[in-house]
Simulated scan of single mutants.
Amino acid sequence: MTEQDDWEREFDHRWANSAEHKEPSARARMLAARWKDNPPNPAPFRADAEPVPRRSSWASTAMVFGCVVAIMVLIGLVQYSSAG
């Protein structure tokens, strides 16, 4: 037999996946035993640790407007200095 045949026989995933009974992993067994007496509290999917404070829409608008004005002033200064 070749080395490839040994590899395929040793790691035959089709045979393993076709097994009728699949044993849960060690972590799954540990969590099942822990949660049997003390089930976890329901939690939303990927919940934040703490709520994030929201900015007001006015603050965001003012920041965008300020950046646009600053860019316009900078462009004007560059054009003024290159013209004179």
Rank of each mutant, 00 (worst) to 15 (best):
S60M: 12
A32F: 00
R54F: 08
W35A: 02
V78L: 14
E8S: 07
L31P: 02
I71A: 13
A33T: 10
W7V: 08
F45I: 11
G84Q: 10
W7Q: 03
A43Q: 15
E50Q: 14
E3K: 10
A16N: 06
A33N: 11
S81E: 04
N41Y: 14
R14W: 14
T61N: 10
I71D: 02
L77E: 00
V69S: 04
A33P: 05
M72H: 03
G66Y: 02
D5L: 13
S82G: 04
S60A: 09
S60H: 12
S57T: 10
S57C: 04
R54N: 11
R27C: 10
V73M: 11
Q79H: 06
R27L: 08
V73S: 05
A62E: 05
R54L: 14
P44I: 01
A19S: 09
V78N: 00
F65D: 12
Q79C: 11
D48E: 09
R34D: 07
L77W: 02
I71G: 02
M63Y: 07
T2V: 04
A47N: 05
V64F: 02
A32H: 01
P53H: 02
G76V: 00
F11V: 02
T61C: 11
S25N: 07
R29I: 10
P44F: 02
W35N: 11
V78A: 15
R27Q: 15
Q4V: 08
E23I: 12
F65T: 13
Y80S: 13
A70R: 00
V68E: 03
A83S: 13
W58I: 14
C67N: 08
G76F: 01
N17R: 15
Q4L: 15
L77G: 00
S18H: 12
F65G: 06
V78F: 02
Q4G: 07
D12K: 02
V64G: 04
R9M: 09
A43W: 06
S25L: 01
R46S: 09
A19P: 00
L77S: 07
A62I: 04
M30A: 12
M63Q: 08
P42W: 04
F65S: 15
E3G: 06
R55Y: 13
W15M: 12
H21W: 14
E10Y: 12
V52M: 05
F45S: 10
G76L: 00
R9V: 06
A16G: 09
W7F: 11
M30S: 09
K36S: 14
I75C: 07
E50M: 15
A32T: 03
T2M: 07
W7H: 13
P53E: 03
R54P: 01
R46W: 04
R54T: 07
I71P: 01
W35R: 03
A28T: 14
L74S: 09
V78Y: 00
A59K: 10
E3A: 09
A26R: 11
V64A: 15
S56A: 00
W58S: 14
Q79T: 14
V64L: 15
A70T: 03
I75V: 15
A28K: 05
P53D: 03
A28Y: 01
K22L: 08
D37V: 02
A62N: 05
S81I: 09
D48N: 05
S81D: 03
Q4P: 00
A28F: 01
W58E: 12
M1Q: 09
E20T: 13
G84E: 01
P53F: 03
T61V: 07
R55G: 05
V73W: 01
P53G: 01
A43R: 15
G66Q: 08
